[in-house]
């Protein structure tokens, strides 16, 4: 690979990383697992003057129990997310989505936070982060701030992160005991989704108590299917109720609209069953 020339910086703390980012100016870029940034550098579609490698910041890896929620370090790899017991028990949807990300090599290098910051509308982790009401914990020159996913994803490859800020943790409320499923349609295993649907459902005594549905790659960013969610609440967990609600995933008549409806139905059906 032959990228354009850049300075390579290796901070040893988050504060140092933030300081470096401020010093290097807006043409500097943070590199996490590099699974999205490196291809872009390789093709010289981006030519940052400096790369600040936060790969050595072990404080940013791992999943912690924080009472009603989980704190997922931004540098936790997909591979670690797939195997984490807290995630399995309290945010199963994230595990199921992560299982489908790219291939094993990418899952060993790529990070949870890196995927969210890259904000590729076809990236798998955006929709579940949105649907699960994740909160981004961000470090910047002025200290820490928290931004809900609904405000974090602002457009096509665009987030609320300022050029001098770094995502350090993601807070995800616990969804203990919820059923979950990720229904993804991609042409080959390593291709991005054409459309995918992330669904989590809480069923109590045969009735849908709560539902979360996020759509991948139907817009400039992840889309939360709020109409589907509200149509489900209070309904019996039946095929009829699910089919009816899934129709609200999209109102258009294009191929992706059709996929949004079909895949929402399938995701909900599997989530309820699981």
């Amino acid at each position: 690979m032959i990228p354009a020339e850049f300075r390579y910086l290796c901070p040893s703390t988050v504060d140092e990383a933030v300081r470096m980012l401020a010093e290097e100016g807006e043409d500097a870029k943070v590199i996490a697992g590099g699974q999205s940034l490196v291809p872009v550098l390789r093709m010289r579609l981006a030519a940052p003057t400096a790369l600040i490698d936060i790969g050595g910041l072990t404080e940013l890896t791992g999943v912690r129990d924080d009472g009603d929620s989980l704190l997922i370090g931004a540098m936790t790899t997909h591979y670690e997310v797939q195997r984490d017991h807290l995630i399995h028990d309290h945010a199963l949807l994230l595990k199921l989505v992560t299982d489908t990300v790219a291939d094993p090599q990418v899952r060993h290098r790529g990070t949870f936070g890196g995927s969210l910051c890259h904000a590729d509308p076809a990236g798998d982790l955006l929709a579940p982060a949105l649907a699960l009401d994740a909160v981004m914990i961000i470090a910047g020159p002025g200290g820490r701030r928290e931004v809900p996913a609904s405000e974090f994803f602002v457009g096509y490859f665009e987030t609320a992160l300022a050029p001098d800020e770094i995502l350090i943790d993601v807070r995800v409320p616990k969804y203990t005991g919820w059923g979950a499923h990720y229904e993804k349609l991609n042409r080959v295993a390593q291709a991005w989704s054409i459309v995918a649907v992330a669904a989590a459902v809480q069923v109590r005594d045969g009735t849908i108590a709560a539902a979360r549905v996020g759509l991948t790659n139907v817009g400039a960013g992840p889309v939360r299917a709020v109409d589907v969610e509200s149509a489900l609440v209070g309904q019996p967990a039946t095929a009829e109720a699910i089919s009816e609600a899934a129709l609200r995933a999209s109102t258009g008549d294009g191929y992706k609209d059709n996929l949004a409806r079909v895949l929402t139905g399938r995701a909900l059906t599997a989530a309820v069953a699981g």
Partner: peptide
């Protein structure tokens, strides 16, 4: 066209 990701980037003239 393929979906999303690099698919939406014009790779013309890329070096590696």
């Amino acid at each position: 066209p393929a979906a999303g990701g690099l698919g939406s980037i014009d790779a013309q003239g890329g070096q590696s």
